[in-house]
Design a protein around this nucleic acid. Structure first.
Lengths: 216, 216
DNA sequence: TGCATATTTTTATTATTATTACCCATAATA
DNA sequence: TATTATGGGTAATAATAATAAAAATATGCA
């Protein structure tokens, strides 16, 4: 699916939100939606929504709006949610277990094959049928099973080390929860979830209610 | 600390990252840093860093750079990290426990006073001295203890219900992990952590390596 | 069925916002 | 004291979003 004009990251970051609302609509049995209605739901302007979607093709119909199911499927395809991803989690602490436990990711096509930890007390335990294995076995496990995504839920101090193992094993996507910026080759994608930064932003907004430009 | 010109959210979202790097530098005993060096570390341009910081005052010195400790303290004050916040967590599942367990938040001044859940099997258990209480007691607990921040780690279906309790109890800041957009009055700040959206974005980037404008 | 009118997307244009580049004053350094 | 480093401020550029105009479809009614 080649496109001439590259899409900006700000647009891409909105797509999952559209996708979520479309899923909700579909569950409610609604099969037709206008950009104006989507605007009311999401808080983005109707024109922005139309422009965002038009980056990827004309999914709408003048005078009609968008077909919910079709648009959801199209966005799913754009986001790559029509595929199955194999993932592993490095770090079987609370956060790693929380992710392993959450059914939502599996439903979206992200299957956690195994957790890994160095703590002998955790090794062998199963989280909802997902076994915790020795971190020493991780590299060979990834290679043998063709894992796509590596999740990092270890402490900051060993995050880079884990990232290096992932890269060595051929993983091309890393979901990083450690509060550190890890270094990887250009062809490996890192998506960070920096909870600290989110919490600090909340703190700022609470303390400076009128000193920033609000945009819902 | 009144300022004429409001600051954009994109700037504010970068501040916690600067703060993190400055903390790292301070821990390494480095007490002087230039915008160029910060640029090399963070990936933002030096010019952007200077402009971001200048929104809040001239913390640097021409010909010298920035004093790490002073800049860190100033950013901390701007972010509101010079205060102590009392927080509670609604939802004592894996994610709630993960947050309660993470020392980093406490070190930054965010103290979790209690977890709440409706599951009788969890009530009474302690996570690192933090007790899990019956969700029925949450409202009175918040009022009695003057809680500042409410964290939501319950399933999507009860997220709004919890938010309503928080609002009724007088909480002014909500950290929401449920994959839903909750509705609150204007004076209540909601900071969302939508893990689904982050994961979907990762999926997009993995599938469309050259179709978006990369900006580290 | 056919026409007039309401909707609603698409495309083009304009306005706003964000980022980068540049110059100058100041401080460090040798 | 000369040279280099560096941030602050301002101007220029680029990116993003909003607006307006245009085209296509649906809907209601005679």
């Amino acid at each position: 699916m080649e496109r001439d004009n590259k899409v900006s990251i700000t647009v891409i970051r909105r797509l999952p939100k559209y996708y979520r609302y479309l899923s909700d609509l579909l569950n409610k049995g609604i099969n037709r939606i206008s950009s104006q209605e989507l605007s009311n739901m999401t808080g983005f302007t109707a024109s922005q929504i139309r422009q965002d979607l038009n980056n990827f093709g004309g999914f709408g119909q003048q005078g009609y709006g968008y077909n919910v199911e079709e648009l959801k499927n199209q966005l799913g395809k754009i986001l790559g949610l029509d595929k199955i991803y194999k993932a592993v989690i490095a770090g079987a602490g609370n956060l790693g277990q929380a992710i392993a436990n959450y059914r939502g990711f599996q439903d979206a096509g992200f299957e956690v094959l195994s957790l890994f930890d160095k703590n002998p007390k955790l090794i062998g335990i199963k989280i909802r049928d997902i076994e915790i294995r020795d971190i020493e076995e991780m590299e060979s496990f990834i290679k043998e099973n063709g894992v796509d995504i590596g999740i990092i839920t270890v402490p900051k101090s060993s995050a880079q080390e884990i990232a290096d193992i992932y890269v060595r094993s051929g993983i091309k996507g890393i979901w990083n929860f450690a509060p550190a910026d890890i270094k990887v080759p250009d062809d490996v994608i890192v998506e960070n979830v920096h909870l600290n930064e989110s919490l600090f932003a909340l703190s700022y907004f609470m303390n400076n209610k009128n000193d920033y430009i609000r945009r819902d």
